[in-house]
Computed example of a mutant assay.
Amino acid sequence: MTEVHSKNTVILLDDNDLSPYLNDSDWTRSPESHKLTAYGDNNNRYKGGLGDGSTDLSGKYDNTAVTGPRAVIEPLIGTNVELVYRPEGTGTGLPERTVEVLVGEYKETHPVADYVMWTLKLTHSGDVTTTTQT
């Protein structure tokens, strides 16, 4: 097994590369669960349902007027766009996940003794396509 360093992660939101501004991201997939416990059972019984997922991004604020995170993200809030997630970076044969996302809460934090930071919540909408890059 080979370790993969997170520093190579690449994330594109609506064809905009947010990677230079990111310092953390997560990819979550989870199924709905349906309780099927019946009389006589001593423990709960479950079956999986529809899949669900989300991605949270966070990073350093950059006031670049056209390409910075605020300039890219704020116009997308409340819309559905494409998310491309490359956990091992960009390159032939490396994995890539693509999914439509609802762009949700964008938040900036302004600590008195530190840099301005931001977070973004994305909700997956529909099927995830997993491929290898060519």
Rank of each mutant, 00 (worst) to 15 (best):
A71K: 07
G68E: 10
A38P: 00
S33W: 15
Y39T: 10
Y106K: 04
L12K: 12
R70N: 06
K7L: 13
T109R: 13
D41A: 07
S19I: 06
V10I: 13
D15P: 02
G48D: 11
L18Y: 06
P87C: 06
S25P: 05
G53H: 14
L18F: 07
D62Y: 11
E108M: 09
D26R: 10
T92K: 12
G53E: 15
K60Y: 15
L12F: 15
D41Y: 10
H110A: 09
D17E: 13
L36Y: 11
D41G: 03
V10H: 11
S33R: 09
D14W: 07
D15G: 00
R86Y: 01
S54F: 04
H34N: 00
K107C: 04
N43L: 14
D52K: 15
N23I: 02
T98Y: 05
N63H: 12
S54V: 08
S30F: 05
D52R: 15
Y85A: 03
T79P: 02
Y21Q: 03
V84E: 12
H110C: 09
N42H: 12
P31Q: 09
T90A: 14
D56M: 10
I77V: 14
Y21F: 15
K60D: 14
Y106M: 10
T9I: 14
T55P: 02
E100I: 12
S58L: 07
A71N: 02
T79D: 01
G53L: 15
Y106T: 03
P75R: 13
E108G: 01
K107P: 05
P87Y: 11
N80A: 04
T64R: 13
L18S: 01
G49D: 08
V99G: 03
V103S: 05
E88K: 09
E100N: 14
D24E: 09
E105Y: 05
A65Q: 15
N23R: 04
V72I: 15
K107I: 05
L76T: 03
H34E: 04
D14C: 05
D52I: 02
Y39P: 00
G91C: 09
P111W: 06
D52N: 13
V84H: 01
V116F: 01
G104Q: 11
T67I: 08
S19Y: 02
L102Q: 04
N16L: 08
G51P: 15
G89M: 12
W27C: 00
T9K: 14
E108W: 02
D52W: 11
P20H: 03
G53N: 15
N80L: 08
N8C: 00
D24Y: 11
L94T: 00
S58F: 08
G104T: 04
T55K: 08
L57W: 10
Y85Q: 02
N42S: 11
S19N: 07
V10S: 09
Y39F: 05
Y39Q: 11
G53I: 14
L76H: 03
L22H: 03
T28V: 12
D114F: 01
T67W: 11
A71W: 10
V99L: 08
N44I: 09
I73A: 12
K47G: 03
R86W: 01
E100V: 08
E108P: 02
G89T: 03
T55D: 06
V72C: 11
